[in-house]
Design a protein around this nucleic acid. Sequence first.
DNA 1: AGGAAACTGGACTGTCAAGTCCAATTGATG
DNA 2: CATCAATTGGACTTGACAGTCCAGTTTCCT
Lengths: 216, 216
Amino acid sequence: MSEKNGSERRLTTRGAATRRRIVAAAADLATKRGVGETSLDDVMEASGASKSQLYHYFADKDALLREAAALQAERVLAAHGPLLDALDSLAAMRVWRDAVLALNRRTGCPLGALVYQLPPSARRARTTVEDGLEAWRGMIEDGLARMQSRGELAPDAAPADIAFAVLSAVQGGLLLSRSAKSDRPLELAFDMALAHVAAQVRRPADRSLAETPRSR
Amino acid sequence: MSEKNGSERRLTTRGAATRRRIVAAAADLATKRGVGETSLDDVMEASGASKSQLYHYFADKDALLREAAALQAERVLAAHGPLLDALDSLAAMRVWRDAVLALNRRTGCPLGALVYQLPPSARRARTTVEDGLEAWRGMIEDGLARMQSRGELAPDAAPADIAFAVLSAVQGGLLLSRSAKSDRPLELAFDMALAHVAAQVRRPADRSLAETPRSR
DNA sequence: AGGAAACTGGACTGTCAAGTCCAATTGATG
DNA sequence: CATCAATTGGACTTGACAGTCCAGTTTCCT
């Protein structure tokens, strides 16, 4: 089995940089134009690398795609991580919501898009995306668990389940926002998710505040 | 401008049948393998048509794609239409939910997938998908409006907004169910949507029944 | 019937994209 | 410095795919 993955034998500083440039360019293009509309020639031009460089660092297009997907997952997690790490109250969740809305370019979710865009051949890349989404959901779950241990969420609430629902709302909202070219779907979906969490909050005061989150 | 669309001058019974076969095959393949993985040769083989037939009935691939997208939208609306036409109560919404869950093949939404899969070049096809999703949302909205006029939904509830949230949950749930290869995300997302509607139901009895729809 | 138009088969073209190959250059290392 | 591995340029091969073309067949309509 040829090894062109992380366990590359040696890797010069320059080589590592080239490699990174290539992956970044692939991830950018895949996000911007879509996976199917991203050719290696495009990646070459965008990264300033040559054909032989691509095949020096990656076994084939699928391998590159896999790393691009991993980078995209990293980026998404890096964007939401700090906000989700701080998730320990409804107020913090509203902060997260505002950030997500501010981030929304009506272009959909770069990670969610891959669920539908990756060709069946790219099995590894697919797995990477699945793991990324699951990690994302896990971060939400952890935040909800913190809320619960702080006594903010009802003891019988199920953070794992709620996290699935919340991430579904976000993904669906992003998809519909892309389709409708409007922020409204995402806004409404996220507010539903907020209300869903708020409905399981202990303190009635905070709950009533959140149950009618009609923006403005 | 050449006309190969609906206003085709004349169309034999046989011709119309061939045309339909082609569109159906294209829609099937696009759903099964993805738009990017569907070549005209594939469509030829699946439909038993020849190259010249494809180009006799369609100006180019984008035109075919557009009709395939329209057919896919029709199919989805036809599947949900009867259930959504009957939507006039929480109970009816639960029936719809059960049907959607039963329909789920963990393959995502054939219509939602197109939002991410259609190439930017296929502008018309894109519009068709957007219209399809909007029509779907409209059907949900209409059902909620019926609930409202029946006095089941609070007078200040906004059916249009709720419909966006509900469809977001469905789309996100389907996407995550595809990724996770599990029905759970869709189930949890849909139950959240149900609770969201139930929260705006007048009769407290029905509401309490629905607010904890934890399946089983 | 018989001409026109719809329909069909299938070979052909041009383009583009993935992947290969080899020679040349740069850098690391003893 | 000598040597070897890492790195790079870029031409080349191969195949797939969208789209073209024309000749032949079937159907429609008067």
